[in-house]
Design a protein around this nucleic acid. Structure first.
Ligand SMILES: [Mn+2]
Ligand SMILES: [Mn+2]
Ligand SMILES: [Zn+2]
Ligand SMILES: [Zn+2]
Lengths: 147, 147
DNA sequence: CCTCTTATTGAAAAAAACTTTCAATATGAT
DNA sequence: ATCATATTGAAAGTTTTTTTCAATAAGAGG
């Protein structure tokens, strides 16, 4: 595994002027290593294996920070409205309802819909949240398992 | 205003076998009369003007119920992840970032995007959450006000 | 490397959000 | 009008999130 201080996400933190502290790097690493939306408590538990002194407060603070920097985003799936996942460039999540794995997808082809809504409502549309859910290939094959 | 027991939403409740109690009708009416995402506490405050004995517990219970029946949906906008709005037939919300007014819009034209994501990922997609945000016509004209 | 400034941290306490429990009540069927 | 019971709200309990603040560690500059 690469040096946690040299990952692209760490670079963004550094360039924004934030210190690369152990607790922050632990949260970052947890998000990067888990392809799933994780709630603060889970991030806290996993993070402590990387940085035993990590506090839950810092998890909350770091999630806020990563969210501001666009390095992580909230996942809103029906029963996990308080999860976060690391964010690459696409910023749209596709969530497996069985194993809760989360992947990003590029959001192309929304323009016509947005324009149609703009015309019908008069709203100027500046942002959108699009989240898809379903079954990942693994869970389609092995309906009972989870990962 | 129409008899609260005769609104289309009330009918759905009745037909599903639930009693049309004053507290429930109050929550329902608050959601119908406010074109905005409202959090439980606000619904509670507004609801008490219609049904003074209303308890916050009942607000939570009623929101769950309305959600199950499809009569209300959660609104996930960035800073109000715990708001609810009444739901008609479209189930997709367009939120004004200034006055927080919420309207529904029909979501057509997503099929190509969904198919493309399915092909690229192998996920079977069974649901989607699409929420738009921007400025309503009023707030475009009067940038500072709110409603 | 050291030194120093200060951003960042975690424990603890506080606040907010939500749920459970249960006796009292209102609803709607009869 | 009567009655069975679904529903209610107060209170207590639990969980989640935020605030506070003294101690610490990052990293800039020497
Ligand atoms: Mn997009
Ligand atoms: Mn949400
Ligand atoms: Zn899966
Ligand atoms: Zn507006």
């Amino acid at each position: 595994m690469p040096d946690p201080k040299q990952t692209p996400m760490a670079q963004v933190l550094r360039e924004a002027g934030y210190k690369l502290t152990q607790p922050r790097l632990a949260v970052l690493q947890v998000l990067e290593e888990n392809a799933a939306g994780l709630n603060p408590e889970t991030i806290y538990a996993l993070g402590r294996t990387l940085c035993p002194s990590l506090g839950l407060v810092t998890v909350y603070r770091t999630l806020d920070l990563l969210n501001e920097l666009g390095l992580a985003r909230r996942v809103h799936s029906e029963h996990h409205c308080h999860s976060y996942a690391s964010a690459g460039s696409d910023h749209h999540y596709l969530i497996c309802e069985s194993c809760h794995r989360v992947i990003e997808f590029p959001c192309h082809g929304l323009e016509a819909l947005l324009e149609s809504v703009r015309m019908q409502t008069g709203y100027v549309i500046s942002a959108h949240l699009l989240e898809l859910s379903g079954l990942c290939p693994d869970c389609q094959e092995h309906p009972a398992e989870s990962a």
